[in-house]
Design a protein around this nucleic acid. Sequence first.
DNA 1: AACTTATCACGAAAATAATTTGCAAGGATC
DNA 2: GATCCTTGCAAATTATTTTCGTGATAAGTT
Lengths: 286, 286
Amino acid sequence: MDIFSTLQEEKARLSPSENRIADILLNDFEFAVNASIIELAEKADVSPPTVTRFCRRVGCESFSDFKVQLARTAYVGMRYLRPEPKSRDPADVAQDIITKAQNALFLLHRSLDLAAIEHAAEKIAKAEMIYAFGSGGNSSMIASELQNRLFRFGLHVTASSDHGMQLMLAAAAKSTHVIVGSSFSGRNTELVRSFTLARETGVTTIALTQADSLVAKAADIVIPIDLAEGNNIFRPTSTRIAYLAAVDILASLVAYNIPQAAVTLRRIKQQLVAHRDGDDRQLLGD
Amino acid sequence: MDIFSTLQEEKARLSPSENRIADILLNDFEFAVNASIIELAEKADVSPPTVTRFCRRVGCESFSDFKVQLARTAYVGMRYLRPEPKSRDPADVAQDIITKAQNALFLLHRSLDLAAIEHAAEKIAKAEMIYAFGSGGNSSMIASELQNRLFRFGLHVTASSDHGMQLMLAAAAKSTHVIVGSSFSGRNTELVRSFTLARETGVTTIALTQADSLVAKAADIVIPIDLAEGNNIFRPTSTRIAYLAAVDILASLVAYNIPQAAVTLRRIKQQLVAHRDGDDRQLLGD
DNA sequence: AACTTATCACGAAAATAATTTGCAAGGATC
DNA sequence: GATCCTTGCAAATTATTTTCGTGATAAGTT
C-alpha cells in the first residue's frame, strides 16, 4: 500500500497539525522529499516529534523510511495534478505525456481485479474459439491486440470491429466459445447486444470496461478498468496504454494456463534470439 | 540525470571500496534504499565516511539526498534486471508487466530526440497528405494509431500495412506529402524500398525506428526509439507502449504546430465533456 | 636504487546534526 | 472534574558529516 492511498483514507482522522503536514505533502511534494524533519516541521508549523508521529500514522517505520516511501511512490503517483503540460515546449509536452502514461499504469495496477483476470484467463485458455470485439479506434486496437497476442499461443481467435459482423459471430457462437469485448466508455450498446445474444447460448462473455457500466452489466466476467479521478484529465492515450497493459497481463496469464505454455514461450524466445542474430529475412511482428 | 546513469559512467573510475558500494546498489537494491549509512557501510565493508564520499561522487548532496534520488529513479528504472516474473502468481505477473511498461516509458523519455520529433511535427503539420506505414502487427498498430490521432486535427492521412499498397502510395506521392514509417526491428526492407522510392520525388520521409538501422538510414528524419539494454529482455509489449507514447508526443506537437490547434483541442475537450454527461448516442473513439 | 614528496584512499574519532523518546502542559470531550 | 488526545520541550539516542591522521602508491629527486 502506498502512502498517498493511506493518506487519502486517513486524512479525515488526522489531527489539525498532522493535516498541515499532509497538505505540504500534497501541495509541495518537491520540498517534502528533500526536506529534513526539522525543515518540514517548521514549514508545517509543528514540532519535529509531531512529524515523526505523523510518519508512523501513515504506516512508516520512521521519518527516513517515510521519505523513501514517498520518493518511490510519488515518482509516478502524484503528478496528475496538472491537467495541461507546463508549456508547449517539446520537453514539457514529452514529460507530461510520459508522466501521465506512467501514472495510468500505476493507477491501473492499483485497481486491478486480479481474480477477475485470472478467471478470464482460464476461460480463454480453454476456449475452442475466441472472438475479440471492440470498435471506435481505441477498443478496436485492443481487439486486434488480443488477437495478435492470443494466436501466438495456438489459440483460435478472430477480432472484429464491425458491429454487424460482431452480431453475426455472436449469434453463431457456441457454449464452448468465449467473447472478449472492450469498451472504454462502457456504453457501447452494440457490444451489449452482442453479449446479451451470446449469453443466450451459454457463450462466456468477458468485458474490459468501466466497472458498473452498461457493458460491464452485460458480461459474465468483468475486468474493470477505472482510472479513478484521472478519467477526465487523462487524454485517451494514457487510458489506452493502461488497456494495453491489461491485455498484456491477461495474455500472459492465458499463456500460463495452457499446458504447453513453457514450450510456446521458449519458442517465442528463440524467435527473439533469431531476430537479434541479424539475418534479413522478414521478421515476425515488426 | 539519474544515479544509475552516473553510476555506469563513473564505475570504472571508482575506487575498490566505492565499487563494493556500487555493487550493493545494483545487486541488493531493496536493502540499499532502506539501510542507514552505517548498515550500508558495514555490508560493503567500508567506513561510513566512504559512503558519504561515494554519494558525493555520484552527484548527490548528502547521504539522505542520495537515498531519495535512489528511491525515485529506481522505482521505474532498475527492475528490468529480472527477465521473468518472480512466479506465475497473477500478482507477480501483473507487477512484472506494469513495471516493465513503466520502465520502457522511462527509458524512452531518457533517450528521446526532441529536436527530431519537433522537426517531424512541423513537417507533418504542413503536409498536404500523410501516409502512415507499418506492418507486422506491432508497427501496423502504430500506423493506424497515427491515422487515428492525426485525422482529428483536420489533416489528410491514411494508414497502410500492406507492402504492395505502400509502394504504390509512395510512388504516387508528391513533394508536399509526408510518409511516416514505423519499424520496431529497423529491418523492414519493404519499408526501406518505399522510403527510397518516395525520396526520389522529394517526399519527406519520417521513420520511427531503431537508430542507425536500415530503415533509419533510408529516412529523412529519424525519431530513434532505442530501448537500450532492455531490448532483448523486454517483451514486445513494453516496446510497443514506448512507441505509442512516442506517437502521442509526436501527435501533440503536431497539434501545436497547426494554427487552429487551440480551437481543435477545445472542441476535443467539449467532446469529452459531452461524453461524461452521459447521453447514450454512440461515442466517438470508444 | 634509495629517498623524498605528492597524492589519494580510507578509517578513527570527534563534532555536528537529525531523529526519537519520555514527559508534562494545554485543550477538548464526556 | 476525569479522561483522553494532541502537542511541544528537553533529553537521549542515533545518524551523519567533518576533521585529521595513517598508510599506500606513484612520481620525481638525489
